[in-house]
Design a protein around this nucleic acid. Sequence first.
DNA 1: ACCCACAATGCAAGCGTTTTATTTTATTTT
DNA 2: AAAATAAAATAAAACGCTTGCATTGTGGGT
Lengths: 336, 336
Amino acid sequence: MDNHTITIYDVAREAGVSMATVSRVVNGNPNVKPTTRKKVLDVIDRLDYRPNAVARGLASKKTTTVGVIIPDVTNLYFSSLARGIDDIATMYKYNIILANSDENEQKEVQVLNTLLAKQVDGLIYMGHTITDELRAEFSRAKTPIVLAGTVDPDEQVGSVNIDYKSATEESVSELIAEGHTRIAFVSGPLSEPINGEHRLEGYKQALKNAKLEYDPSLLIESKYTHKVGGKVYKTIKEANATAVFVSDDELAAGILNAAQDDGLKIPEDFAIITANNSKITEMVRPQLSTIVQPLYDIGAVAMRLLTKLMNKEEIDEKTIILPYQIAKRGTTKEED
Amino acid sequence: MDNHTITIYDVAREAGVSMATVSRVVNGNPNVKPTTRKKVLDVIDRLDYRPNAVARGLASKKTTTVGVIIPDVTNLYFSSLARGIDDIATMYKYNIILANSDENEQKEVQVLNTLLAKQVDGLIYMGHTITDELRAEFSRAKTPIVLAGTVDPDEQVGSVNIDYKSATEESVSELIAEGHTRIAFVSGPLSEPINGEHRLEGYKQALKNAKLEYDPSLLIESKYTHKVGGKVYKTIKEANATAVFVSDDELAAGILNAAQDDGLKIPEDFAIITANNSKITEMVRPQLSTIVQPLYDIGAVAMRLLTKLMNKEEIDEKTIILPYQIAKRGTTKEED
DNA sequence: ACCCACAATGCAAGCGTTTTATTTTATTTT
DNA sequence: AAAATAAAATAAAACGCTTGCATTGTGGGT
C-alpha cells in the first residue's frame, strides 16, 4: 500500500473520468450526468478523498477564510461579538482566523499583514480605536473589511454598531431622572472616538437637556479591568459623584464591588449604569443596570455584511446601526 | 499601470535574479550573497511584494496554521485557554483557525474535517468529552493533535491538564476540615470522564479519608450556566447539604447568588468551592474560593507541545499535568 | 438517416510558491 | 595558473486544484 496523499487525480483515474469532472462533482457543478456523479461520489467515498483546500485556494483565489482581529478573546464584550461572527461565518461556509491584538498598534498592523498574506477573503476588525497607520493599511487592501463594535469617523469600510451617543445620553438621563446631579463618566481613553466623541457627546447632551452643569472633573479615563475598579471608585468619590456611567462591564463590576466594600448601599447611596450587558452584569449583586447591546447580533450582522461584500453584492448601506435598549436592574432605582 | 497581483516572479525579474533566489531571501535561507540579498530586499520593498501564503502552503505542505476547536469562545474557561494558545502560536509564527463546536458531536466532526481539509499543521481540541467517532477521526488523522483542558482515558494524543482528581479531593477536604459533612458535588454529565472519573473519584476519596458516608443524592449533574444556578441551589438545599463543590465558575456564581437571595450567609451558612479560577470568581461577592487552574498556561503549554509535535521533535511525555493550587476566598471559612 | 443544438466530458494552462538537481561563479589549494 | 572545492544561483518540476475552451456524445426535428 503506497502511502501518498490521495488527490483528485487518483479519484479521476479510479472513476475513469477526468480531473475536471471530479472537480465538478466536488463543487456541485450541475453539468454532470447523474450516473457519473454517483460513480465519482462512490470512488470519493471508497478512497476517502478529501479535497485539499489550499490547492483549491490557490487555483480559485478564494480561501473561504476570513480574518478576525480581536483585542482579547478573554474579554466578554469581544468574545460575544466573535461568537456571532463565527456562527454566521460557519453558516456561509467560512472559517475564522482569530488573532488577538491587545489593542497594540504594532501587533495590529503585523497581524493584518499576515492575514492578508494568508489570502483571507475578508476581514473583521474589532478594537477601540483605529490608528492612522491601520487606516492606511485598510484602504490599501483590496480585501473587504468590516468593523464590528468599533467606530471610525472615516467611514471607508463597513461597520456595525449601536448609536453610542444616544444610548449614553439615555442612560445618563435615567440617572438624572432618579435625582442625581453629579454623575461621573468613566470610559477608556477620550482620544478614542467612541469615548471622546460619541459617548461623551451623549453625556453632555443629557446634562444639557437637564440644564445641569458640565464638570470635567467628573470625567475619568481608565483601563477596562475589574481590578482598577477600586481606584476608579476612589476618584469618583473624591469628585462627590452619586452616580456613574461606565462604558465597560468588568470595570463597572469593579466599581460596584468597591462601592459596596466602602459601605455604600446600591442603588440608594450610589447608582451605576454600564454599557455592554455582557453576562457579567447579571452575575454580580445587585445586577448591573445597563445599556443592552445586541452583542451577538453586532458580530453576526458584521459577518453577514462581510459576506455580501466578499460576494460583491450591492450594499445599500455599509454603516449599520443596530437598536439598543436600557435594562434597569439593581444598580439604579426603579422609576415608578 | 497593470493591476495584477505582484508575485515572486516579478520580484525576480526586477532584481535580475531567479525566483529561487527570491524565495531564498524571503525564507531567510543563508545560501545567498549579502549583496544579492540586499538587492532583492530592495525590490521587495519597492514593489511592496507580499508572499502568497496559500501558494507557499501548497508548495511546502505547511500552512503555519493550526486549528482550534473550542466549545464556546464566550465561556471564560475556554477563552482563557484560547488566549494562551494564541499567544504561543503567535510566538511560533502560527495562526489559529478558531471554530466553536458547542460540544455538539456532529459539529465537532464536521469542523474537524474542514480543518483537516484546510491542511492545518496541527490541531488543539477543547471540550468536555471525546466521543468515539471523534476519537476515531483523531487516530485516523496524520495531523498532530493536542487536548487542552480536556481529558481522554485513551491517551493517544497529547494533552495538558491539571490533576482533577486530587484537586477535587483537596477542595472537598477543605470543606470537610471546616466542619461540613454533607457536601454536594455539582458537575456536568458524569458520563464525561473528567467528571464521572477524575472529579468524582476525588470527591469520594476525600469523603473516605474523613470516614464520611458517600451519599449519591448529593450528586448533581447540571449545565454550566449562571442561569441554572437557582435550580441547582434548590436541589442542593433539598439534599440538606451545607457546602458544595462546583466544577464550573459561572454555575458556582449562580449558586452563590441563589443562596444569598435565599437569605443565607456565606460562608457561615453555606460554603462553596469552585474549580476554574476564571476572573468571574473575583467579581462576585463574596469572592469564590476555588481551585486555581493555570488556564492560560494550560493553553500555552498545549500549544508549545503541539509545536514540538509538528516539528517532529522528540517528546518525553505527551500527557502533561500542570500544578494547581487552592485559593481560599470568601465562600469558605478561613482556616486558622 | 442527417444535421443541429446542447449537454457532458476532457484537455491543459494556469494559480504562486518551494525545492531538487544542476550549472555557474567564486575561493582555495598546490 | 590550473585544478579542486565550496558557494551562489538557476532551471524546472512539483504541489493539488479550478476553469476556459475544445471535443465528444445524445437526442430531437425533419
